[in-house]
């Protein structure tokens, strides 16, 4: 067994340097050099202000903006660090609800969210929490269901807002891959730019 110790230890250290250090650092160097936008988180900067990331959803609560999907992320409770409180779209601690299908908490949450939307049946993505808690998209139906509220809040005809949604809708990649969707942050930025 002892004669096996040398190859075991030496190979572990060599692989640590090769695959644990050289490999990620080489990829980092390449990415920072040639693909800095993606490598640093696809950041959205407007007038010198960092607004977030194109890829990561953020919390919208006001009536003037499109809202993203329900988010189950949380953060430590400031008054008691042993506990957590719900902080939607906390991109420092991703999480889904992990509620099982027969969970009473889930059933009640879905009911409350659907009631807030009014129309039935509600688009599934607007009444269910995303897997990451950071889903940047809503479905086309999920965006269209919010058009009336935003048009009223901004005092414009719903057709204008709807036209914006239609324009920013993203289709499936190569026509078959993934799902049609709308990026909520991009949509809200367009909203502020075009229908202030």
């Amino acid at each position: 067994m002892l004669v096996l110790l040398r190859p075991a230890l030496v190979l572990t250290v060599i692989f640590m340097l090769l695959t644990g250090l050289a490999y990620p650092l080489a990829i980092t160097g390449f990415a920072q050099g040639l693909l800095p936008h993606q490598a640093n988180g696809s950041l959205v900067i407007r007038n010198g202000r960092l607004l977030g990331s194109e890829l990561v959803g953020q919390a919208f609560t006001g009536p003037r903006y499109f809202h993203g999907r329900p988010s189950a992320t949380s953060a430590p409770d400031p008054s008691d660090p042993a506990k957590t409180v719900g902080v939607p779209y906390n991109a420092a601690s991703s999480s889904g609800s992990n509620l099982g299908p027969t969970s009473k908490v889930l059933a009640e949450a879905v009911l409350t969210r659907a009631a807030a939307l009014g129309d039935r049946p509600a688009p599934a993505d607007l009444v269910t929490a995303s897997g990451s808690g950071l889903d940047p998209h809503v479905s086309p139906a999920g965006a269209l269901a919010q058009v009336a509220r935003i048009a009223a809040a901004r005092g414009v005809a719903p057709a204008r807002v709807e036209g914006l949604v239609q324009r920013l809708m993203e289709g499936r990649s190569f026509g078959f891959l993934g799902e049609p969707r709308v990026n909520v942050l991009a949509l809200n930025l367009a909203l502020d730019a075009e229908i202030p």
Partner: peptide
């Protein structure tokens, strides 16, 4: 069933 799933996939 969209609970726990992401729209893009």
């Amino acid at each position: 069933n969209m609970e726990g799933k992401e729209v893009r996939f």
